[in-house]
Design a protein around this nucleic acid. Structure first.
Length: 706
DNA sequence: CTAGGGTTAG
């Protein structure tokens, strides 16, 4: 893919309307506060919490920097007011950030380096003030103290050394650089509170904070998920009468990006650009990742366009984030083109590049591209690391490449133990996944047991895959055993695992029901009660509706449809009151979980049953037939062709639906015929009408029974 | 590594 040439003038967010919020400005808090008017820090509650990487619409629309878009910030207006002769917009006066970086001292090679490095290692066993006193009876030279401070690990040793240095010069405070170095160490140790108190100490005793101090504080806050404090310290830069330089600026850009506050991040970027900033690679990587996170393809295009405009050649990191972003935006073809472009530009892909590409091909089920790339990796001796190994295994799982995965897994097992390439829970999960989705429960189970023997902790996904596979083979006792082992080993039951247990409820016979219910009781007792309610003839629709709504509200968005699918299966398989399956389907439809199943054209009406469970597919089909019968009765115009699609089972989770649905249609003696393509069933109008008429006259009841 | 920013697995 070439960089896009049709460049629109500015980024228009795809998912968020701008217009609605641009009228209220009185309560907005400028990102670039006026120097004279120091503002109190924003309340922490104003920022989305850690658990919420995708803030609500209102969060995103909180017009923190929409003030920037409207250019109402006093600081931003001052240049033209103070300096009316400044009229060349192509060379704007820098107003929001420094055009240059903080100057750093050039380092002469210190002859003590080696000695100090050995010393820092010996101090790393224990480091008390006594140790420091013994090691340095004479005052330490400035540069040696700094080098040692920088090399002490973990953070508390550096911090203790810092305190010791402070105690050695009680009359004069340590210079900024000492604070900066120890702050870096505190960041590595994720000690934000301590870092912040040191920064406050600097302010208190008059040690100047510089851009290095601020950027370290901001990234430390970011790593500790204290985004509110990151923004607080960014505002502090302006309050102190300084301007951020491009490192500090990129750091805060990354904070907004991580918060998912995309408009504000873009506004920050554009404001800096407008004031003459020529960004380096970092902000593009930050923005690309931000857009990729939400699959915002237009956002990715915006990043490409900006780089193109600046005639900037992406480096490997930028390519990596762009490739990953395109994958997340569901554009495997564009990712492939961009990867080719990267090679054509003479860059060598690294582990992360290849991980991104293999992941994309696996998820898209582009088997040929995946295997082709794998061959090229080996032929070119491109670097491979542990994560790439595991990604290759997951790709094999996605594509059902059992033999390739086995070879790779063996390779990992034969690697040196020190290399950290021994299979871990991720690798085992991939193997369990391969065997599980290939219908080989024995091998999957063997993998799980082997994993436990080798002391590798199971994870929730591997356990879920295995339980699902054992469930499909109706090996309920094994499934229950695996569940209990997983729980004993500290697995936290997530919604997917709950859904998996729910599918066991649908599959097991009456004798095993209590064992499965006991598992589900540990995972989600509410579901156990709800299943009982569904089986109770006396339960009213309103009760079912309320309880289902509660359950779905508590559940993760992407398990809601699987939950309903499973519940429908349970109703049908366990002989619950026959209206129940239809009630769940109706409610699921009401909650928008089954939208887009029907397509009505003038020549053909189509029913898409892909990603439905067998029971849900049957129930949806029954409702469709009922609706069609009504249409016939009311003599509506019908098309010539009716088609149903179940999917061919290319996706491992939909395996079996085409087959099950085919025999179901045969049982019903329906006129639908599989039409060349697997999983595609077609009936002609006349055949369908006569079949529906005969069924409804012989049944006497409009409900189609199986 | 040598005081500060960006990229990898369901």
């Amino acid at each position: 893919m070439a960089f896009p040439t049709s460049a629109s003038l500015s980024y228009i967010p795809t998912s968020l309307p701008l217009s609605s919020s641009s009228s209220s400005s009185s309560s907005t808090r400028p990102v670039f506060p006026c120097r004279s008017a120091a503002r109190p820090p924003p309340p922490a509650a104003e920022f989305p919490s850690n658990e919420n990487p995708n803030p609500s619409l209102s969060d995103q629309l909180r017009p923190l920097s929409l003030t920037l878009l409207k250019q109402t910030s006093p600081l931003l207006l001052t240049p033209s007011k103070q300096n009316p002769t400044w009229t060349n917009p192509s060379k704007p006066k820098p107003s929001v950030l420094l055009p240059h970086r903080h100057p750093r001292p050039t380092h002469s090679h210190n002859p003590d380096l080696r000695r100090l490095s050995l010393l820092s290692r010996s101090l790393s066993v224990s480091s008390s003030d006594d140790d420091f006193d013994k090691a340095f009876p004479n005052p330490l030279p400035h540069s040696s103290a700094l080098l040692l401070l920088n090399s002490l690990r973990p953070w508390h040793k550096a911090h203790r050394f810092f305190l010791w240095l402070q105690s050695k010069s009680p009359s004069s405070p340590l210079e900024t650089i000492f604070y900066n170095v120890v702050l870096k160490s505190l960041r590595a140790g994720r000690q934000f509170s301590l870092a912040e108190s040191l920064a406050n100490e600097m302010i208190h005793i008059g040690v100047p904070l510089d851009n290095i101090t601020y950027s370290t504080l901001i990234t430390c806050a970011k790593r500790c998920r204290r985004f509110d404090r990151a923004i607080y310290w960014f505002n502090k830069v302006y309050q102190a009468g300084l301007l951020p330089d491009e490192v500090t600026y990129s750091a805060i850009l990354d904070v907004y990006a991580e918060l998912g506050r995309r408009e504000e991040a873009v506004a920050l970027y554009e404001r800096a650009r407008a004031s003459g900033w020529t960004p380096d690679h970092v902000p593009f990587s930050v923005l690309a990742k931000m857009f990729g996170e939400v699959g915002d393809y237009d956002g990715i295009q915006y990043v490409l366009k900006e780089m193109k405009m600046l005639d900037m050649k992406p480096n490997v990191v930028v390519f990596n984030t762009l490739l990953d972003a395109l994958g997340k935006a569901g554009k495997p073809g564009l990712a492939r083109n961009l990867f080719d472009e990267m090679l054509a530009a003479g860059l060598t892909p690294d582990e992360k590049t290849l991980t991104a590409m293999i992941k994309i091909y696996g998820k898209s089920r582009w088997g040929r591209d995946a295997l082709d790339l794998w061959d090229r990796m080996r032929a070119n001796k491109w670097p491979v690391d542990f994560i790439l190994y595991n990604t290759l295994l997951s790709m094999c799982a996605d594509l059902g490449l059992e033999e390739d995965a086995e070879k790779l897994f063996d390779e990992m097992q034969q690697s040196d133990r020190g290399q950290r390439q021994q299979p871990d829970s991720f690798s085992y999960t991939a193997m369990i996944n391969i065997y599980g989705s290939g219908g080989k429960p024995d091998r999957a189970l063997k993998m799980f047991d082997e994993m436990l023997e080798r002391g590798v902790e199971p994870n929730v996904m591997g356990s879920t895959c295995l339980i699902q596979c054992l469930g499909k083979a109706t090996r309920i006792d094994d499934a229950v055993r695996v569940f209990n082992v997983a729980i004993e080993r500290g697995i936290k039951c997530d919604d997917r695992l709950c859904g998996c247990l729910l599918s066991l409820v649908a599959l097991c016979d009456e004798a095993d029901m209590s064992k499965v219910a006991a598992c589900l009781e540990k995972a989600n007792p509410r579901l156990v009660r709800f299943v009982a309610m569904l089986g109770d003839e006396g339960a009213q629709f309103e009760e079912v509706k309320e309880e289902l709504r509660g359950i779905l509200n508590e559940a993760n968005v992407d398990v809601r449809r699987p939950f309903c699918n499973c519940l429908i299966d349970i109703c049908r398989n366990r002989g619950y009151p026959s209206r129940r399956a239809h009630e769940i389907l109706r409610l699921g439809t009401m909650y928008g979980l089954y939208s887009g199943l029907h397509t009505k054209g003038s020549k053909e009406w189509h029913l898409n049953l892909r990603s439905l469970s067998i029971g849900a597919a049957k129930t949806v089909f029954e409702e469709w037939m009922e609706a069609l019968f009504d249409s016939i009765e009311h003599e509506e115009t019908l098309p010539q062709i009716f088609s149903v699609q179940t999917g061919s089972g290319a996706h491992r989770f939909s395996q079996g639906l085409a087959y099950a649905f085919s025999s179901y249609l045969e049982e019903l003696a329906s006129p639908f015929r599989q039409n060349g393509e697997i999983g595609c069933f077609v009936a002609m109008k006349e055949d369908l009408i006569s079949w529906l008429r005969s069924r409804n006259s012989s049944d006497g009841d409009k409900q189609i029974e199986v």
